[in-house]
Amino acid sequence: MVKDYKHIQTAHCENGVITSLLQHQGLDFMTEPLAFGMGAGLFYIHIPYMKVNGGPMISFRAMPGGIFSKTCKSLNVELDKRKFKDELTAQKYLDEKVAQGIPVGCQVGVYNLSYFPKEYRFHFNAHNLIVYGKEGDTYLISDPVMEEVTTLSTNDLNKVRFAQGVLAPKGHLYYPKSIGKVDKTTIQKAIISGINRNIIYMYRAPGPVIGATGIKGTANKIRTWRDKLGARKAGLYLGQIVRMQEEIGTGGGGFRFLYAAFLEQAADHLQNDKLMPISDQFTKAGDLWRSSAVQMAGIYKGRLTEQKDFDHTADIMTEISAIEYNAFKQLAKLNLK
């Protein structure tokens, strides 16, 4: 069992694993918002022509694993990460590391995750948790989205580590192998590099698919859904957008507040007050994402059924698109180096 392991609950699993593992290695300044911002976690993509669970394929955060590798790279943290062909080798390697007293991050599928509520268990394979000990046949689990630590049997953990489907984890595990020198300047540089990377994702990426302009792209599609899909299917599509925004382990409105919190902490680390008003804009964007979700709920509950209701939803998203675009434009103008 790992000595002095401290469970940290976070809004998003990947941020949580980074924060916990790095704090455990002595990087006490690490917080969830910093992990998220250094890893350039804020994102928007609406992949055209592809469907997930029969609805639109939208993501509010960077590619799974991306936040982790970016944050660790900026902080000179060298990772040991590997995938496995079979369960037994994967289990042995994990047992070995845990016996050495190393907390280990694992990518898992949610469908068979026994301690999750049934309603939340879909075939989503990019969840992350930390194994911090083993007692007999039971693994001690620190899942960042859970309030308390929990456990999984060997069989159950193997099952979720080898879940199948899109982004199949293949036993993927990782932990910080060595950490270089981290001082004030390293932290500042990591923050700036995260911001600059996020400017590329959200502001410089052109077209109606990725970034702030992608949000407007979705808004324009929503205007056509009522006629094209019929009220019921359009409602399911909107429900999917809300679920992608707010489900455990994701969060559209949630991610915007997280980014606002990151900029607030960044202002402190960089001693730069100019970041504060920009942080406020992300708070506003987050609030509007929540309003859009309320409006969408009205539609999928069948209370709002007219074209003007779809247009109103789209109008809110167009406004969000403009706010996030301008916020990143201002970040770009700061020209942080």
């Binding site: 309603e119 939340y120 409602g235 399911l236």
Partner: peptide, 24 residues
Amino acid sequence: GKYESGLSSGWDVKNEALENAWGD
């Protein structure tokens, strides 16, 4: 006016989206 983390037991808007998906 400073950010901090808080705990939420759930949000009806989200619950309904999930219920809707399960209904389907």
